[in-house]
């Protein structure tokens, strides 16, 4: 009887220790970014900048200008296009990284295939009191679209700086597995703020 009780105690202790081991924050967590959470339409106020997600669109293809020539960019998954409005808080700053975190915590960084566009895309320079629109573009697997979170921070590995975490909410899937409302081609040749270049 006593032996059985000891065994039960041992198992409880092992379970407890496993829990402690798993849930103990480590260096990467301690110096990780500090989340500021919000949803689409909210003004999410971080330390150095504030951001509001206006809309989220999905597309199979993108059309963009590259050195005066129009290119169509395809993808193995789906393009997710997030239109945002930034403003700096206390000082002019640069917002340079964004990623798309799917429901299973797969993290899709902002695409590097549009780095030839230098206006309205990351990195974005923002000044206090001046709103600035920009487009964030991600390539994601279609099933990582719903209940995703868009993470925006001023720089990569911004230790203990704020990171905007904006939840996208559920996205219905159409019969072919693509998110509902996916358009064939989205046009990026027009500037996001409507101002001529």
């Amino acid at each position: 009887m006593r032996r059985l009780a000891n065994l039960v105690l041992l198992l409880v202790a092992v379970a407890l220790c496993y829990g402690l081991q798993m849930s103990k924050p480590h260096y990467a967590d301690l110096i990780g970014p500090i989340p500021v959470r919000g949803k689409v339409g909210d003004v999410v106020v971080g330390r150095s900048f504030e951001v509001r997600v206006e809309k989220v669109q999905f597309a199979r293809k993108l059309r963009a200008d590259r050195y005066g020539e129009t290119k169509v960019l395809t993808t193995g998954g789906v393009w997710a296009l997030v239109t945002v409005e930034f403003a700096a808080r206390d000082a002019s700053t640069v917002v340079s990284t964004a990623s798309w975190r799917g429901p299973t915590r797969l993290t899709y960084d902002h695409t590097e295939r549009l780095s030839f566009i230098n206006n309205g895309f990351l990195p974005v320079t923002v000044d206090p009191g001046l709103q600035k629109k920009a487009r964030l573009v991600f390539e994601v697997r279609p099933e990582e679209v719903g209940n995703a979170t868009v993470l925006i921070s001023s720089k990569l590995l911004a230790a203990l700086d704020s990171q905007a975490e904006i939840s996208i909410g559920p996205v219905a899937a159409s019969s072919d597995g693509m998110p509902a409302g996916t358009v064939d081609t989205l046009d990026l040749t027009q500037p996001v703020d409507g101002l001529p270049k």
Partner: peptide, 18 residues
């Protein structure tokens, strides 16, 4: 190089074959 559009050494994303 990514053969889709000739992007030089882009990041590849989780679970997406390129």
């Amino acid at each position: 190089v990514l053969t889709r559009d000739g992007t030089l050494s882009p990041e590849l994303h989780p679970g997406m074959t390129e």
